[in-house]
Structure formats: structure tokens, C-alpha cells
Amino acid sequence: MSLVDAAHGRSDSTSAVDPSGGRPGTLPQRLLGRAGAYLALTKPQVIELLLVTTIPAMFLAGRTIPSPWLMLATLIGGSMAAGSANALNCVIDADIDKVMNRTKRRPLVRDSVPRRNALVFGIVLGIASFAMLYLTVNLLSAILAVVTILFYIFVYTFGLKRRTAQNVVWGGAAGCMPTVIGWSAVTGTVQWPAFVMFGVIFFWTPPHTWALAMRYREDYERAGVPMLPVVATPQHVARQILIYSWVMVGWSLLLMPATSWLYAGFAVLAGTWFLFYAHRLYRQVKRGVATKPMALFHRSNTYLMIVFCALAVDSAFGFPAFGLPF
């Protein structure tokens, strides 16, 4: 599980619905249902959050609003790369998805897309993403997109997901790459602010995903996936969520030399707000009272959007930065 797996929580439990309601329909209805099933393989709701981090990275790279055409090309190419990784993940994890209530409506589980077709679709989409970024953005961004796909599939999905409770810690690096790709799209290089943005999402991923896994612990246990809430006590999980939350908020402040008072203010306020709820979850678990981990999960999405939207606004208006950014 990573950012690419569960950005909104609803992406794993929903998929495209056959407009014919499962009954034979007209040719347009059947085509629409088939197209919707392939679209569901890409997990479009997950991609939405990835794009929220790409655009601010592009704004910060130039401390201004980038070319609309460059943004469009980067977002399309990045979406295709993320869609490729997600589709291939659905192929590899089809056996897991069948036994998890949260994922049982995915296209391969419902047999709305043949597994071989999904595999070809994912590979072709990945190749197309490289071509799109190479032809319209630059070679570095295209290479980074392919590296992200390969890392997500071979390191996270094949290597980590079913073997270690640290799967989302290191596997989550794939979900951090949109910031680096967005930066490289504007500058043709990768500089320190890109790595700081990468780190914000890297430290955000464990609290985000472990809160979700606390809610769906039985699902992961049934599927044999060693998510931290499956193999550790609730107290340990809540403590780890709290630790990563503090590191995430502190890390977000490392962008201050490249930004102005506007970003700094929102980063501090949003971080304080999120830490309040992370501490509340920890206290509730420690006392043994009822908890609502999904509330923290949804707040983690809100936190990330606030921080990166503040970054975009700060850069778009060109407020004087605290220091020389790069």
C-alpha cells in the first residue's frame, strides 16, 4: 500500500460500472462499460492526488506560473505513468483483491477485463507515457516516469508488499516521484527543493496509509499482507503514526528558504492542525477507547492539499523568498 494505492480511500472500493447493469445492452453501452473498466484499472481517484503535488512542484521550480502547455503535457504524461503502474499492480495483486472487501470490485476481480488484456494495457500505457514526456517535456522527466513505474512494480509490489511491515515506508517512494518529475519538467534538472518535496510525501505516506490499514486490518490479515496494523499492537502503530507525522511537519519547513512567509504560515498552521489529531489518535489508542482512524486518513489528504496548494500560490504570486532557493 502506498500513495499510489490509496490516495482517497474510495478508489479501491469502486470501479467503473457497466451502464447496462450487467445485462446485454447496445453497442455504445457495451463500449462505454468496457472503457470504464479499463479506466478503473488506472485508479483515477489516486491520480488526482498525485497531480495535486505535481503542479505546485512546477510552480516552485520557476517561482512563477509555468507554460500551460508544459503543465498539460506533464500532467498527461504523469497520469499515464501512474495509470500504467496502477494497472500493472491490479494484475499482480488480483489474488489479494479477491479476498479483500475493499478491493473486491476492481475490474479483474469482476472479470470485466481479461488479465492478459490488463497486462498489455499497463505496459502500453507505460511506453506511451515515456514517449509523451520525451516528445513534449524532456528526456529526464520521461526517464524518471519509467523509473517510478519499475520501482512501484518490482520493488514495492513484487518485493516489499507481501514480505515486510515496512512495505509502505520504502515502497511509498514511488508516490513521491511526481514532485521530482514536475520539477524536472520545468528546469531539466533535479535540485534540492525537489528532494524536500519528495521527503514531505515520503514521511506523509506511513501515517496516511497506516490509518487506513487500521480501519481495514481484517482485510489485510485475510489477504496475508503484513501491514503494520496486522503485525503490531495498536499502540505501536499509533506511536509510529505520531512519529512520522512530526517528522513530516518538520520536513515541510525545510522548504522555507525557497518560499516566503505565505507558505511558511500555512505549513505551520496545517502541520499544527494535523499533529493535534495525530496526538488525539495516539491518546485514544493508549487509553483503549474507541478510535476513528479513517478521520486521520482523510485529514492527511487535506493536510497534503493545503501544504502544496500554499506552495503553488506562494510561487505563483512571486513573494520574495526567505533565501536563495537554488
Results as ranks from 00 to 15, higher is better:
residue 163 R to W: 15
residue 168 V to Y: 09
residue 127 I to R: 07
residue 210 W to I: 00
residue 235 Q to Y: 11
residue 185 A to S: 04
residue 212 L to C: 09
residue 158 F to H: 13
residue 159 G to N: 07
residue 183 W to A: 00
residue 236 H to M: 14
residue 202 F to Y: 08
residue 201 I to G: 01
residue 142 A to P: 00
residue 177 M to W: 09
residue 135 L to E: 12
residue 204 W to A: 01
residue 171 G to D: 05
residue 163 R to V: 15
residue 136 T to L: 09
residue 176 C to N: 03
residue 158 F to T: 09
residue 198 F to M: 08
residue 240 Q to L: 10
residue 219 D to N: 02
residue 232 A to H: 11
residue 210 W to L: 00
residue 156 Y to G: 14
residue 222 R to Q: 15
residue 209 T to K: 09
residue 146 V to C: 11
residue 196 V to P: 08
residue 161 K to F: 09
residue 244 Y to T: 13
residue 192 W to P: 11
residue 152 Y to N: 07
residue 190 V to F: 02
residue 131 A to I: 10
residue 130 F to Q: 13
residue 230 V to R: 01
residue 171 G to A: 11
residue 195 F to Q: 06
residue 205 T to K: 01
residue 179 T to H: 13
residue 157 T to L: 09
residue 230 V to G: 02
residue 172 G to W: 05
residue 229 P to W: 00
residue 218 E to Q: 14
residue 207 P to L: 00
residue 203 F to H: 10
residue 133 L to F: 03
residue 178 P to T: 11
residue 177 M to H: 00
residue 245 S to Q: 11
residue 201 I to T: 06
residue 212 L to Y: 10
residue 248 M to W: 01
residue 186 V to A: 10
residue 195 F to H: 03
residue 221 E to V: 10
residue 141 S to E: 08
residue 151 F to R: 11
residue 187 T to Y: 11
residue 138 N to F: 08
residue 198 F to Y: 01
residue 167 N to F: 11
residue 136 T to S: 10
residue 181 I to R: 13
residue 215 R to I: 00
residue 179 T to Y: 12
residue 226 P to I: 14
residue 132 M to T: 14
residue 176 C to W: 05
residue 138 N to D: 15
residue 169 V to M: 07
residue 133 L to R: 04
residue 220 Y to P: 01
residue 239 R to M: 06
residue 215 R to F: 07
residue 237 V to R: 00
residue 143 I to F: 11
residue 135 L to W: 14
residue 235 Q to C: 12
residue 171 G to I: 06
residue 246 W to E: 07
residue 146 V to H: 08
residue 134 Y to C: 12
residue 246 W to C: 14
residue 212 L to P: 03
residue 213 A to E: 06
residue 161 K to S: 09
residue 221 E to L: 15
residue 235 Q to H: 14
residue 165 A to Q: 14
residue 246 W to N: 06
residue 171 G to P: 06
residue 196 V to A: 07
residue 230 V to C: 00
residue 167 N to V: 04
residue 195 F to E: 07
residue 226 P to T: 04
residue 221 E to A: 15
